[in-house]
Amino acid sequence: MKLRQRVSLLIRGKKPRHSGTARLLHWLYAPAVLGSALSGFYIHWPGSSLGFRKMNTARETHFFAQFTLLFTYIARVMYGLKGKNYREILPNRKTLSDMAKFLKYEFYLTDKEPKFPKYNPGQKVLFTGMVLFVLIQIITGLSLYFPKSWQKTAKLVGGLNPLRKLHFLSALTISILVTGHLYFVFTHEYKKMKSIFTGYE
């Protein structure tokens, strides 16, 4: 029992939290987002600090990462719609009132930690933001990758330069959201972090 307690983080809990499909997709799109961001920022500003030595390597990385992200995004959205688990993620009317309690606690105005179902209002906003901004990335990214056949998208925003700016700003927003996600993962309830590996908290 003592040994079990020592390695409790590695042992599967009892309460189910993430299905196998959700975990599989998470661990596919997580590196895809990371790879897209690193290679994308290198393409934006070529330098040696992001781990690429040649533009061609960065572009190849971006190519594989972006298409992995595209397919896993579609799969995750379909899975969310089929299992109706999108309801756990999308904010609703209650999220608004919950947000006040959540922010009060996060800004240290109260010590009483409010309890929420699977995701707190902050997570809901963060995950919904990811869904929206990844969609923007996919549309703007494909328009930049296929500029001739997707010229209507460029026309919609006024040209390829504004489109490229939109792609960059969206990437920046996703990077900020991911940073926030990682921060909360590593500082709040490790048993929840554990569940993305084991499925149970």
């Binding site: 003592k2 307690q5 020592r6 983080l9 010590d111 500082t187 490790y190």
Partner: peptide, 20 residues
């Protein structure tokens, strides 16, 4: 803020046991 208010310590204590 989380460290000063002891929330990080609480998290560690709650989710880890033993030596770690």
């Amino acid at each position: 803020g989380s460290i000063l208010t002891g929330r990080v310590a609480d998290t560690i204590k709650k989710d880890f046991s033993g030596g770690i």
